[in-house]
Amino acid sequence: METFIGAVINGLALGMAYALIAVGYSMVFGVLRLINFAHGSIYAFGAYMVYFFISIQVGLFWSIMIAIVLSGILAMLVDKLALEPLRKKQSIPIASLITTVGVSFIIQNGLALEQVFTSEKKGFPSLNLFPNIMIGNLTIQSSQIIMFAVALVLLAVLSYIVNKTKIGLSMRATEQNARAASLMGVNTNFVISFTFFLGGCSAAIAGTLISGYYQIISPTMGATIGLKAFAAAVVGGIGVLYGSVVGGLVVGVVECIAAQYLGSNVRDPMAFVILILILIIKPNGLFGKKGVSKV
């Protein structure tokens, strides 16, 4: 029983961090109908930036702050430099998809260069900032609590931005109908940039939290986790913020339980098993709105 509860707690903490990555996919998919394959590499980039600034003696807090902003800017640049020109040319959708794949190659392998961080794994400072909590035989690590709490607060902030602010309104308008929104005076290019910025920031935070939990980073760390988080976003219903949270938690908990009882081989693919089951039952995800097809 304790191992089961332990797996659930572990899953909830991880799942919350997945949700933080998932919203980045979800927001970008919402406005552009694009799977942003560069997102996982930005998650890795964020973690590496924290590592770098700590290594040059910037304090933990400021290192994280700088990393968040840099990751947001990087995500925005990806859009400005590589994706916006494609939109202007009205390229086929697959061109954007391949572009994000190319960008993820650049970032991921850029981090792994000998002159940069090398491809070797690096230690990452632990985020066990206060003593672990013991309940009977059950240990809850402080990094798990921090991961859960920080992600929860940030998702609330994101939710506030999307639902209550002017820029959030523009984002939702663009998501509904980019052309109409732009005719109504919404600067869609700015909205899209901002969406990428927010996505990049949350990916960096998730990168920090998860790296602080595992205490290890590598340039390819974003590849699998990115795909999983994307699956989580789709499970919850793309374009719906709380959907990403539920999707992230479901994926996190299920994979931890599966890993506990079926072995570590099934940990990563669990996200996709859930994904396919959900899509077959509910084609728009758990909370997704039904898309209206036009003739």
Binding site: A82, P85, L86, S91, I92, A95, S96, I98, T99, V101, G102, V103, S104, F105, I106, I107, N109, G110, A112, L113, E114, S119
Partner: peptide
């Protein structure tokens, strides 16, 4: 290792100029 970075760059450029 630069070649993988360049590989990514080529994909991006290809999509820009000869999709």
């Amino acid at each position: 290792q630069w070649r993988f970075v360049i590989y990514g760059l080529l994909l991006v450029l290809m999509m820009q100029f000869r999709p």
